[in-house]
Amino acid sequence: MSDLNIMIVGVGGQGTLMASRLLGNVAMQLGYDVKVSEVHGMSQRGGSVVTYVKMGKKIYSPIIEKGEADIILAFEKLEALRWIDYLKQGGALILNDQQIDPMPVITGKAIYPESIIERFEDGGIRLFKVNGLQIAEECGNTKAVNVVLIGLLAATTSIDRDIWEKAMEQVIPQKVIEVNRKAFDKGYLLS
């Protein structure tokens, strides 16, 4: 496999951490070198959060830079727009179709950008759009949005499905594993 660079972007508190742990586990199982990088601290308070996952034969910098992401996993639309420059030409954008207004929008100092999805479509981006919240709810837990998105991501890669299943077993707590399995399946079938 050539190197795989995945960026996870969203809003603090959306469960992006679990997604990066699943990806890290998958890379370990495949015997790849891997680096996962996140910034803690201030960003937890409802701010913009970004996590980088890089896997391949030998990984040096833990950071993904502009035009380098094979996949951007976006938990929120504005965050997808903010980081879109990081997508590699021909890369895939997996987008949770959710809007969370940032404080400048709430206070009326800024407006939430319009027609974000159309901009991606017009820009020729390989877009996989999903209503993760609704699917997660159908599976029985709104918190499973992250695993719905991971399911969809899994289907866009050539990595064997068993490996993802095993990663879930190792990373997700036993008491919520069933809900998350369902969520993964639904995401996987969306592609």
Partner: peptide
């Protein structure tokens, strides 16, 4: 991709 910031709150 002009985007409003999302400062922590």
């Amino acid at each position: 991709n002009e985007s409003p910031g999302r400062p922590p709150v």
